[in-house]
Design a protein around this nucleic acid. Structure first.
Length: 420
RNA sequence: GUGAGCGUAGCUCAGUCGGUAGAGCACAGGAUUGUGGCUCCUGAGGUCGCGGGUUCAAAUCCCGUCGCUCACCCCA
């Protein structure tokens, strides 16, 4: 019988790392909160149809990376591979969209059946924001400012890469020109690139193959096809970013792999991560709401890969408790347990760990030391009869003292100032 | 889906020419009875990823498989 293990590409998060993960999540939740965004939660499973219609049939995500299955009613369901589709579906279903502005954020797990590697898991966590009902470049700028504040608070400074994909008409023309251009060189193209030329020619732009990169030098540029609206939008976004002193680079080759983007697209990139270097990305998707059955509504958003962000941060986990409770003998153990409950009620910020499995004084103090506790309370026969407890400090020069049970709260309060 | 490298104790790793396993850290107990950390002693802990093959004998050689890592691909 094989030893049970987690499924491929789906990792456990152990206590050391969990703490850092929680910090990252907290930063983003607080930043979104501070911008007046509201939380939304939606299911991990949706009908497969939803993802086909939003992300696009031809994308790799839908074509070969989804966890798709039939349930007992023979309905085709899929584990969500990204957040935007489900968020939009939920917003439409509950009337969150028409005739108003909406700013939402979400946090959760997503699933893609890809070959795992650094920065790429089959189950991964994302934080994302989606906004509806605002068509100007100022909302594009706002979500970038929101992101910028998050990076600041985490002490990171990923490179912001920006591009515009124009409107669908402009893009269609560009796409045709690209296909024509690359078709001349079809015989020189590698198999992957030839396939892309057929199915998703825009993706040739970010191909890593040398031949493509060389050919791109002379390839038709979308910039030359952009109309008034597209230009004004992009310029407006850039002005706002400049006004806030936010650094960015324009990369005309940034296209992204989901079909629903228009106008603005962007990524935050941290090169040191290796091949999977995008910490997050997003853009504007003005057609998606209508495409999914809602009233036409402009929209913009982004998503961040929490595991990748974690990779950039040092684990400085401190799982230390504050106070460790040591007791000798049955009666003292029971009395100490009660004292612990009392103190947790009186001082809810304190982390108080009770010794289990008895053990000698030596063993208990050793566990206290390992727990990282700054102070320990000790109760034995003597203290029991005196209605007192020994307060001993493990980390500082303070002498240990015997404290009456009635005074223990104030004695602790002297050494553990309430935080936050 | 493709390619390369790697799977030995909880962790990091050693293991020669095939002769059925070791270290450090971590863990538990002790060094005169109720005081942690440092030191010393002792102990516990291993289906050598899994399955098959070759052999008198496999952690070691061969095949398969699962997993990890990195890259392609793709994206967060």
């Amino acid at each position: 019988m094989n030893r049970l293990q987690s499924v491929r590409g789906m990792h456990d998060v152990l206590p050391d790392e969990a703490q850092l993960r929680r910090r990252i999540e907290q930063v983003w939740m607080e930043v979104a909160h501070g911008f007046g965004y509201e939380e939304i939660r939606f299911p991990l499973v949706e009908s497969t149809e939803l993802f086909r219609r939003s992300i696009g049939e031809a994308t790799d995500i839908v074509a070969k990376e989804m966890y798709t299955f039939e349930d007992r009613n023979e309905d085709s369901l899929s584990l969500r591979p990204e957040g935007t589709a489900g968020c939009v579906r939920a917003a439409i279903q509950h009337g969150l969209i028409p005739n108003r502005q909406q700013r939402l954020w979400y946090l959760g797990s997503f699933f893609r059946h890809e070959r795992p590697q650094k920065g790429r898991l089959r189950q991964f966590d994302q934080f994302g924001v989606e906004t509806f009902g605002m068509c100007g470049p100022d909302i594009d700028a706002e979500i970038l400012l929101l992101g910028w504040q998050g990076w600041q608070r985490l002490g990171l400074s990923p490179r912001l890469v920006l591009n515009t994909l124009g409107n669908p008409d402009e893009r269609l023309i560009w796409r045709k020109q690209l296909v024509e251009y690359f078709s001349q060189f079809e015989s020189q193209l590698e198999e992957d690139d030839r396939r892309r030329l057929k199915t998703n020619p825009l993706r040739l732009l970010d191909s890593k193959s040398k031949s493509i990169q060389d050919l791109l030098e002379e390839a038709p540029q979308l910039e030359n096809l952009l109309g008034e609206e597209s230009r004004t939008h992009f310029d407006g976004l850039r002005e706002t970013l400049d006004a806030h002193g936010i650094d960015y680079a324009i990369d005309p080759r940034l296209v992204r792999g989901l079909d629903y983007y228009d106008f603005t697209v962007f990524e935050w990139v941290e090169e040191s991560l290796g091949a999977q270097s995008a910490l997050g990305g997003g853009g504007r998707y003005d057609r998606l709401v209508e495409q999914l059955g809602g009233r036409a509504t402009p929209a913009a958003g982004f998503a961040l890969g929490l595991e990748r962000i974690r990779e950039c941060l040092e684990a400085t986990a401190t799982t230390a408790v504050d106070v460790y409770l040591v007791a000798l003998g049955e009666e003292a153990t029971a009395r100490m347990c009660a004292l612990g409950m009392q103190l947790r009620e009186q001082m809810p910020d304190l982390r108080i760990r009770t010794n289990m499995e008895a053990g000698s004084m030596k063993a208990q103090l050793r566990r206290a030391d390992k727990s990282g506790a700054r102070a320990v309370l000790i109760m034995g026969e003597e203290e029991l009869s005196q209605k007192s407890v020994v307060l001993k400090f493990l980390r500082g020069p303070e002498e240990q003292q015997t404290v009456l049970l009635d005074n223990i709260k104030s004695a602790l309060a002297e050494h553990f100032a309430p935080t936050g």
